[in-house]
């Protein structure tokens, strides 16, 4: 059960980070070079999708994943949903990384932390499922 809680904790951390990226300007430590620049990424047109900040979709993904991993421990239907949700998470990260590298040409470190947290949530979750 501890691994499910670890997945939920990683997901909650991701949610808090995504809320920060949605609502506040990036901190100065995020500006390392013209390539490693959160400002460049977060002020680009790709920072919005369907009229909402892209990070807001991260909040939704992490919030659902947080609840999902806790409920999936002993509910088969939720476990199936979490598998699909994980796929969406990985696909979204892949698209976002592509956009950063090839369309914007800059990398946002805080966004990368959020991407790593997506993988951490999924890794903890599937490892926990494999042990139950």
């Amino acid at each position: 059960m501890k691994l499910f809680y670890a997945a939920a904790a990683a997901s909650t951390a991701g949610m808090v980070l995504s809320i920060y990226l949605t609502l506040l300007p990036p901190p100065q430590f995020c500006e390392i070079s013209s390539f490693l620049s959160c400002e460049t990424v977060l002020s680009s047109p790709y920072a919005y999708f369907l009229g909402l900040p892209t990070a807001a979709y991260g909040v939704v993904w992490f919030a659902v994943a947080s609840s999902g991993v806790l409920l999936a421990a002993d509910r088969k239907a939720v476990a199936k949903f979490m598998t699909i949700w994980s796929f969406f998470g990985v696909a979204a990260v892949a698209v976002l990384v592509y956009v950063e590298f090839f369309l914007i040409g800059s990398l946002c470190i805080l966004c990368t932390v959020a991407h790593v947290l997506v993988f951490a949530v999924i890794a903890f979750y599937f490892y926990a499922k494999s042990r139950t």
Partner: peptide, 24 residues
């Protein structure tokens, strides 16, 4: 007990999401 605890814990991120959407 664990099942109930998980259910209650799962409500926290859900509530945070609702609060976030309202704030947005």
């Amino acid at each position: 007990t664990t099942r109930s605890l998980n259910l209650y814990l799962a409500l926290i991120p859900a509530a945070m999401l609702v609060a976030f959407i309202i704030y947005l």
